[in-house]
């Protein structure tokens, strides 16, 4: 009978324990959703204004493919996974190593962006006010870079407390959330790279 069944089914679920998803996991997931909405608007603005600049310099004249920076950022997504696994297994030494590698790769990416901007500003005379390309380029790439910087601050914090002797393995959950955020920043870079350096040229 359906009635008894409902009740029995319920008793079953409750006996087996009532499990709800982890709030940190769900929180990070929806944080990523809302951040994606933010990036979408900047990407749309970039796409809308491709080729609409009234004066130079144009993207095809001044932009070079940032291959090295891209490789660095994408591989930092891999090293952070290795660090996470090491931490899960309790290999603190390996964790530190992979963590430093992640930070180094992230720094390399930021440096490359800095060099590129320096070249664009001083050699090509492209600033945020020069034309629509400058406005949209610096905004979109800058928004992404600011997210990299935020991630970097947290990565450095984790490294700092780890070397200060804090038992980081107790914070495994939070480290994993940080690594998800880092993956998100990487994924956004794939979009930015495609839009700015592939479609936009």
């Amino acid at each position: 009978m359906a009635l008894a069944q409902t009740y029995k089914g319920d008793a079953l679920t409750l006996e087996q324990g009532w499990h709800m998803p982890d709030r940190g996991t769900v929180g990070i997931a929806f944080l990523i959703v809302t951040e994606s909405a933010l990036f979408t608007i900047f990407v749309v603005a970039y796409l809308v204004y491709i080729g609409k600049s009234l004066n130079g310099p144009m993207p095809k004249d001044v932009l070079d493919l940032p291959i090295v920076a891209t490789i660095c950022l994408l591989s930092s997504s891999i090293t952070v996974v290795f660090a996470e696994h090491a931490l899960k297994k309790g290999h603190l030494g390996a964790f530190k190593l992979w963590w430093i590698a992640t930070i180094a790769l992230g720094l390399e990416f930021l440096t490359a962006t800095g060099i590129e901007w320096h070249k664009l500003i001083y050699k090509d005379h492209l600033t945020i006010r020069t034309n629509l390309f400058g406005t949209t380029y610096y905004s979109l790439v800058g928004l992404h870079a600011s997210h990299v910087i935020v991630g970097m601050v947290f990565l450095l914090l984790v490294m700092g407390v780890t070397f200060a002797g804090f038992p980081i393995q107790t914070q495994f959950r939070r480290v994993r959330f940080l690594s998800w955020y880092w993956h998100f920043v990487d994924a956004v870079w794939v979009v930015v790279f495609t839009v700015v350096y592939v479609v936009g040229r």
Binding site: T34, E35, A37, L38, T40, I41, F42, A45, I128, R129, N131, L132, G134, T135, T136, S139, L143
Partner: peptide, 21 residues
């Protein structure tokens, strides 16, 4: 809400940094 925030950031860029959005 993020689209509004994004548009407002663009407007700030226009007003303070001389952007052209």
């Amino acid at each position: 809400l993020p689209p509004l925030t994004a548009a407002q950031v663009m407007l700030l860029i226009d007003r303070f940094l001389g952007g052209n959005f």
